[in-house]
């Protein structure tokens, strides 16, 4: 057959475009959303590999029990605790639980002998770190909620607003967790990280700490429903930073601690 007289017309432009789209769609794997990726990773790794060993689980349990005891003692010894200081206490306590869980992880990470092997695996060390930070956030939320329900049972029901306490606790934790990750990813110097962390603590004490005329800021002056959008905003920043942590290796970087 003479190829110059092949009896088929060339396809139309839109047919060509559609076929290109079909080829590209077939060849390219669909983009996986970050929550789906985290869920898949969690399903793959399972709970037992999220915590390095039993010492981390023991630490979490001890933290929970210690906080319960401390809160019970504080509530029992100071009748005025419930009315005036409970919300400030909650605002500062929530991030501290998250900080305690995260610091244990990062201190162990600094001494981690298998860091290089982890970094070369399908799920890189940073992706696992991001999943762990999310789980720590959830664990801290649960611990805090447990402590708050305990407080609610111990204190005068007329003065303690549980929905406010829960939303305040979640918002302050998410605010701190997103700042924590931001500093970890953006600030290289450990000294600067310590300075920023101390500044955050000092600011909290200054704003919320007791003084002669009460405190500069009282968390219960804001209605609880306003903490919901604030919490959602902080959760958005927290997830954004988690995603950045998980994607760090693909973007050609590592974080150090």
């Amino acid at each position: 057959m003479n190829k110059n007289h092949f009896p088929i017309d060339p396809p139309e432009e839109d047919v060509i475009a559609a076929q290109i789209r079909q080829i590209v769609d077939t060849a390219l794997a669909p983009n996986e959303s970050f929550p789906v990726f985290l869920w898949r990773m969690y399903k793959q790794l399972g709970f037992r590999h999220l915590f390095r060993d039993w010492t981390e689980i023991l630490f979490t349990l001890l933290l929970f029990i210690s906080l319960g005891i401390l809160t019970a003692l504080a509530a029992a010894d100071q009748p005025s605790f419930a009315a005036e200081r409970a919300y400030a206490f909650i605002f500062m306590l929530s991030p501290l639980v998250y900080l305690a869980l995260s610091l244990l992880f990062f201190v162990r990470r600094m001494q981690d002998p298998i860091h290089e092997v982890e970094m070369s695996c399908t799920y890189s060390g940073q992706q696992i770190a991001s999943l762990r930070m999310l789980v720590f956030g959830a664990a801290a939320l649960l611990i805090n909620s447990g402590v708050l329900i305990f407080l609610r049972l111990r204190l005068d029901t007329g003065t303690f607003n549980l929905p406010l306490a829960l939303t305040l606790s979640a918002a302050s934790l998410l605010l701190f967790a997103s700042l924590f990750l931001y500093v970890l990813l953006r600030v290289r110097s450990n000294m600067m990280r310590i300075v920023l962390g101390s500044s955050y603590a000092a600011l909290c004490i200054l704003l919320l700490g007791p003084n002669e005329s009460g405190s500069f800021f009282s968390p219960d002056s804001i209605p609880f429903y306003l903490y919901l959008p604030l919490g959602a905003l902080f959760a958005f920043f927290f997830l954004k930073n988690l995603r950045r942590l998980a994607d760090l290796q693909r973007q050609g970087g590592h974080f150090s601690c």
């Binding site: 060993d53 981690d112 298998i114 092997v117 982890e118 695996c121 799920y123």
Partner: peptide, 27 residues
């Protein structure tokens, strides 16, 4: 598959446990 120059391991892990952990990381 990568074997680093200074291959680290957890001293209290057995080879079975260690390899199970790495297998999970490898998906």
């Amino acid at each position: 598959g990568y074997l680093p120059q200074q291959f680290g391991y957890y001293k209290n892990d057995s080879p079975q446990k260690y390899l199970t952990y790495i297998a999970a990381l490898k998906g």
